[in-house]
Structures are given as C-alpha cells and as structure tokens.
C-alpha cells in the first residue's frame, strides 16, 4: 500500500476498524511511546519504536482563506520536522549531550494521548492510526509550553514488533507559542 506511506497524502476517512485485540495492542504501543518520550528516553525510542524507513513530518500552519487552494500547509514547504531516520537520529544525538542547555536542567514532560482510532489496511500487519495529543513541557521555575495536535500514523509489524513508519503531525498553533520544540510528538 505505497499510497498510505506517501507522507503528503492525508488518510481521509478510514472505515476498517481493527478487532479489539489489535486495538489494545496499538493503544499500548502509543502509551509506551508517550512514556518513553516523557522520560526523555529518546535513544531507546528511536532504536525500538521507529522503523528505518521512517517519514516524520510536522508542517507549520499558515492562516489562509478557506478558498485558498494552497490550504493551511503544503508538503515540500517550511515545516518543523520533515525527517527521515538520519535527521531524527541527529536530533536524538543532541539530547544525549550534557551541554544541551535547553534540556539541562531537565525539562519535565507530559505527553497525553487520546482519540485513538486504529484501522486495518490492505497489508497484513500495517495499521493506520489516528490519535490526538497534548504535550506539556515545563522547565526551571515557571516556563511552560503546551502544544495540542493530531497525528496520522502508519504502524508496521515486523519480527513481531510494531514500528512507526510514517507520522503526520498537525498542531493547532499558527505562530508557535514556544521558543523551541525540545521534544518529539
């Protein structure tokens, strides 16, 4: 199903909900991922949950008229992330440095995941997953950043493990109301 993996293509309406067992498995996967990110276990996250052919995209949101054919975002233009494995791993390497000052002292994270919908695809063991998130970061005494958004993920099972192969992240902010994004979504 190459189309599903096309990062520029939205899921649209999916209507093939999976069985309860699979749904629980995927839900557990998403919650584990959130817990790893909360704990800043980025290396473990990329090593165990991210597929080598990952596409990870988070466009910035333009404010546009409803009738503007460009829409609020467009793949190939500016974005916060438009990463393959290489770019993600560079970002992870920075977190591993003690002189990553924006993370030292440590940031306190909470990744809250909800609105999970899991759909089957034409390929066995490949799932299309909607979810929504709230990300709260708090630093030092009173620096707080909150980002809300939605995700469209493709998870693929290989060697018995689910891994993320594609993620589209749409936040609700136009101007990012934070100085940085020292986390993943």
């Amino acid at each position: 199903m190459p189309d599903l993996l096309n990062i520029a293509r939205p899921f649209g309406d999916l209507d093939r909900p999976v069985d309860v067992e699979t749904e629980r498995e995927v839900t557990r996967w998403l919650h584990l991922e959130a817990r790893l990110l909360d704990a800043e276990r980025y290396q473990e996250w990329i090593d165990t949950m991210i597929a080598p052919d990952i596409r990870y995209w988070m466009p910035d949101m333009d404010t546009r008229r409803r009738d503007d054919p460009r829409g609020t975002f467009r793949h190939g233009e500016s974005a916060y992330f438009d990463d393959s494995w290489h770019e993600l791993s560079v970002r992870v390497r920075r977190y591993n440095e003690p002189s990553a000052w924006a993370d030292n002292p440590a940031t306190r994270h909470a990744h809250l995941i909800s609105n999970i919908e899991v759909h089957a695809t034409d390929d066995d063991g490949v799932y299309a997953v909607f979810s929504a998130f709230t990300n709260v970061r708090n630093r030092n005494e009173a620096d707080q950043d909150i980002v809300h958004g939605r995700r469209e993920d493709v998870l693929r099972r290989s060697d018995g493990r689910l891994k993320l192969v594609r993620r589209r992240i749409f936040i609700v902010q136009n101007i990012l109301l934070s100085k940085n994004l020292n986390t993943f979504f």
Partner: peptide, 18 residues
C-alpha cells in the same frame, strides 16, 4: 535549516533560553 535553525533545530533550540 529545519534540522538546525528552526524551533526543533539542534542549534536554535539552545539559543532561545539564553
């Protein structure tokens, strides 16, 4: 530029707090 000088970039990330 996305990987270096944007809010999630490995350089810009550490400028703002200073």
């Amino acid at each position: 530029t996305m990987m270096t000088f944007s809010p999630g970039g490995v350089f810009e990330m550490d400028d703002g707090e200073n």
